[in-house]
Design a binder for these strands. Sequence first.
RNA 1: GCCGAAGUGGCGGAAUUGGCAGACGCGUUAGGUUCAGGACCUAAUGUCCGCAAGGAUGUCGGGGUUCGAAUCCCCGCUUCGGCACCA
Length: 839
Amino acid sequence: MSNKEYNFSEIEKKWQDFWEGSGLFRVNEECDRDKFYCLVMFPYPSGTLHVGHGRNYIIGDVVSRYKIMKGFRVLSPIGWDAFGLPAENAAIASGIHPSIHTKNNIKKMKVQLERWGVGYDWDREVTSCEPDYYKWTQWIFLKLFERNLAYKKKAAVNWCPSCATVLANEQVVDDLCERCDTRVKQRDLEQWFFRISDFAQRLLDDLETLDGWPEKVKVMQTNWIGRSEGAKINFKLEGSEKIIPCFTTRPDTIFGVTFMSLAPEHPIINELIKGTDHENPVSEFVDRVRCQSAIERTSEGTVKEGIFTGRYVINPVNSERVPLWVSNYALMEYGTGAVMAVPAHDQRDFEFACKYKLPIKIVIQPSGNDTALRPEEMSEAYVEDGVQVNSCQFDGIPNREAIPKIIDFFEEKGMGERNINYRLRDWLISRQRYWGAPIPIIYCDRCGAVPVPEDDLPVLLPENVEFKPHGHSPLNDVEEFVNTTCPKCGSGARRETDTMDTFVDSSWYYLRYLSSKDNAQAFDSETVNKWLPVDQYIGGIEHAILHLLYSRFITKVFFDLKLINFNEPFRNLFTQGMIIKDGAKMSKSKGNVVNPDLITEKYGADTQRLYTLFIAPPQRDAEWNDRGVIGSYRFLNRLWNNITEFEEHFKNVPDTEIQHSLFSKETKELYRHINITIKKVTEDIEKSWSFNTAIAAVMELLNMVVDFSAGLRDKEFKDEVNINDFNILRLSLETIVKVLAPFVPHICEELWKILGHNPSIFSVPWPIYDEDAIAAEQVEMVIQINGKVRSKLVVPSEISEDDLKSRVMEDQKIIENLDGKKIIKTIVVPKKLVNLVVR
RNA sequence: GCCGAAGUGGCGGAAUUGGCAGACGCGUUAGGUUCAGGACCUAAUGUCCGCAAGGAUGUCGGGGUUCGAAUCCCCGCUUCGGCACCA
């Protein structure tokens, strides 16, 4: 056999041009055949892609091409998440305008994507920084503003000093900026928010409908939304008509309240202390605590601190006077900003009470009361279940049962009500940066914040801007941008100079692909309703909360606006694992980036694709091994050489139907394995996306074909048996080429031609296997004695149990091993094994 | 602390209604081919004992269920991810 290396660069270019020219991936949205919307998360144009990024696009391409062969009309679009900080930071550093920088990067990355042979409908390309895209991002803002889902408020927000902008909660990880790892600070600023917290329950409920999502992502979103059930209880302020409500998940502990904690930001504090002896110390405490960052305030290790206000509230159930404190562990953003403190049954309250010598009152005792709790002996709060004590009419009831009863009691007496709280906060969407979609709002002294009329969209980003990181948007300094007239009253007014979080851009792009060139609307409802939800979404786990939660939210808003008829954007989600190099995630700063261009140059795109798929199951992280690439390259060359050496025969030997009656033992076995392989590959793709094992199965088949073809080499195919043998070889090679086509499309197109067919292999239906051919006539069975393998027997697969047993007893090795011992039990697993239990 | 995932040769990984552990590939070793290198071909390759035939042992550790456990149950350990002063 020849050992040439195939000319991948010529072949790959040729077929990439062919697919582009023949419009393999161009899809007419009017088409009503079986549709399949396959979507990969669109990239941020950072400049270059590494092999780790490649995994995402390669997986998406495998799915698209497989579905095409299965007869689906596949929509596979791509675009660019093109607004964002890196381009602007580059502008500050180098003076190159972000739009130039971004366009250059897009050009480079597009070449990379094409070189991988990943197929897209480029006619649908969207770029989020282009006015014809961000016009509609602004339109979406207006729609939310109309429905009061976009609003401005002053709040303590996360400020990244390095990025010189505010960040959403989701973009702060362990008190660090998700982008640049700088420690964020708390600042009181007036900012724009989207009311995502109004959708908390729906976002939670609909997770249950997402059967095609990884459990892990659903758990993460559930945690992030953080629902807790409980009650809101009204405490009267002593000496006032005022009520201070507080939220609790443990209304069963209401009789154990011994103090109340207010968040330092609580608006009532000032009036509580005004003119009293407590005014100065409490104010000082409040000011000091408010300077701390969120993490200093809220981490578990932080020492609890507080100060007495001098005032009391009244516990509604027993009229006890409850001292009112301000403490650093009460958060204004959660619940009502006031905590009813039960030191006996809450660890935080317990620590606080110990520190300030506040009373501890037990209201729940462990059941089986041999070990009754006593306050003076407690070293930590008792947070387990038990039986109510010191709780008047509720005494003796198990606390879990008491909860609804106590809430009913509150509701009857007007003391409080059922209540649910969520951890999810509203989405902070304004950014003090240039390179984003301007928020379409105009401030007028007379009319307030006025939305830009739809007809005036887009609010264009001015081109000539000075780039400096100074903590307010560079747009502030552009007079002709800022100064405008009020759309309502016509008097002089100023534009909003903040831009939108880029996650707003990416929260709706999957809709725009369906009408990327439509100048009259963001998307066409009818078309979108036909093609969405997305059948398969593929992307990184890092978006488990951010992008995927925001997109679900925006989809629900559109649903409410009756713009779309579906509630969830992505029916199936696949999160691929990271490619690791030298034990770490690839990054420029670590210098462990593997450049795909070098791999493609040396071995070709198909090799890179094959290795990326073969390296590990796609959902798992995998270590990139440069040596491993060569194995994939060898395999493709082996396949190439085994087909091309018979090229003449494929032309000359008539391609007659295979005659089963002419099968020899070898041909029958090969025919059987052809069918086994089709089955295995199909099931691996369909059921579990186990591309690595699918490819391994094809490798096994090729190994078998290589052995088989050795016997046919140099033969002339003249008699009937000969021709039949050759056509089995032909069938096996054609099958290999077909089932490999989604993985390594270029070489398969070329080999399909060499096998004597017209292009394209993607117009060929996915092969179907013959179930009957898979059944073997003979099987090898393992013979065990006491669970240890002692012999193996080849027997007819339909052998009777009696025949099998007598064959076992005649086996020389078994006779030796039995050594006269007594057989107590015989276990027979048909077609697999026989186990003799002996003593 | 709570929730979740994972742990198998020198390496990536395979095997799940419980039934031959290590498919496939990398690496390594030996041989062939080659002026040479690479490439290619053939064979071997978990560990230990043995010239061999063969035997023992082996899937993070310890128990258990079973004729039989990588797989099921219990108790631990390690790694990774999420949440974490959210009342």
